[in-house]
C-alpha cells in the first residue's frame, strides 16, 4: 500500500462576537485514512488537536443539510466530500451569503426560515382535514413528481454558489424557486405559479442570470434548470390567460 498522505486542512477561523478576534486561516495536519471524508477529518481535529473549532454536522449522511462549506472554493457538503478526491492542501471557508456565526458555521436556518415564510411554504389545501374519511387519491406518478421536488435538504449550496444571491439579499435562490415548484406541481395545493407574486420579480425567476452554478452544486441532483424553465413557462401561461391555473 502506498504511504498515507499527510493532509493540511487550512480552516477559516473567526468569532465575530469576540471583539479581539481577527479573521485568519489556521493549518492543521491530519494523516489520511482509507475512505476519509471531511466529517472524519474535522472531528479528528476537534477531538485531538483543537476543541474550539466550530463547524456543523448532524446526520453525517447528506440528508440534514447542516454541513455546507466552501472546499477549495466550491460549495460542498463536508460529510460527503472524500479527502482522496482533493489535493493534500484543503482550504475550508464558511459559505458566503449566509451570516457567519463563527469559523465554518453559518446561519442557514434563519435564511431558509425567512424564505419559507415569504413563499408560504405549506400546503394551501382546498378542504379542511376530515379524520374519518379516507385520503384523497393521487396517482403514483404525481406523488413521485411532488416528492422529487420536495427532496431539497435546504443545505444552501445553490445559494452559496449563486452570483445573484450574493448581490441581491431578497433573491429566493434555486432552493426557494424549487420549493415554489413543489407546491405548483402538487394538485392538492390551490396555488398556481402566478399566485406567488414574488416569482415574477427580480427576486424570483427573473433574478436568475442563467449561470446555473446551483445546478452543478446541488448534492441531491435536483433538476434545477428544468424547474426554472417549468416555472417560467407556467407563469407565462398563467399571466397570458392560456391556462395552467388551478382555480
Amino acid at each position: 500500500m502506498a504511504e498515507a498522505r499527510v493532509l493540511t486542512i487550512r480552516a477559516f477561523r473567526h468569532d465575530p462576537a469576540d471583539q479581539g478576534s481577527v479573521p485568519r486561516l489556521q493549518d492543521y495536519t491530519v494523516t489520511e485514512e482509507p475512505g476519509m471524508n471531511l466529517f472524519t477529518a474535522l472531528h479528528r481535529i476537534r477531538d485531538e488537536q483543537d476543541p474550539s473549532i466550530a463547524f456543523d454536522f448532524s446526520c453525517r449522511s447528506a440528508v440534514c443539510g447542516s454541513c455546507g462549506m466552501l472546499v477549495n472554493g466550491k460549495p460542498r457538503l463536508a460529510c460527503r466530500t472524500l479527502t482522496r478526491d482533493l489535493p493534500a492542501l484543503i482550504q475550508l471557508m464558511p459559505m458566503p451569503v449566509f451570516r457567519l456565526i463563527r469559523d465554518l458555521s453559518v446561519d442557514t436556518g434563519v435564511w431558509f426560515r425567512g424564505m419559507n415564510g415569504r413563499i408560504e411554504s405549506w400546503l394551501h389545501e382546498a378542504r379542511p382535514f376530515d379524520p374519518t374519511a379516507p385520503e384523497e387519491r393521487m396517482d403514483q406518478a404525481t406523488a413521485e413528481k411532488v416528492y422529487d421536488a420536495d427532496r431539497c435538504i435546504e443545505c444552501g449550496l445553490c445559494v452559496a454558489g449563486c452570483a445573484t444571491a450574493a448581490m441581491r439579499p431578497g433573491f429566493l435562490g434555486a432552493a426557494g424557486l424549487n420549493r415554489i415548484g413543489r407546491f405548483v406541481l402538487d394538485p392538492r395545493d390551490t396555488r398556481s405559479a402566478a399566485d406567488f407574486s414574488v416569482l415574477s420579480t427580480g427576486e424570483g425567476v427573473f433574478g436568475c442570470l442563467g449561470l446555473l452554478g446551483c445546478h452543478d452544486y446541488c448534492p441531491k441532483d435536483l433538476p434545477l434548470r428544468e424547474r426554472f424553465a417549468y416555472l417560467r413557462r407556467s407563469l407565462a401561461w398563467n399571466l397570458l390567460g392560456l391556462g395552467g391555473r388551478k382555480r
Binding site: L123, P131, E135, E136, M138, A143, D186
Partner: peptide, 18 residues
Amino acid sequence: PVAVRQMAAWGVPWNRVV
C-alpha cells in the same frame, strides 16, 4: 391511520397504490 392521513392532508407525498 389517522396520523398518516393527517400528514397527507398537510402535504406529504406518500407513495400511492398502482
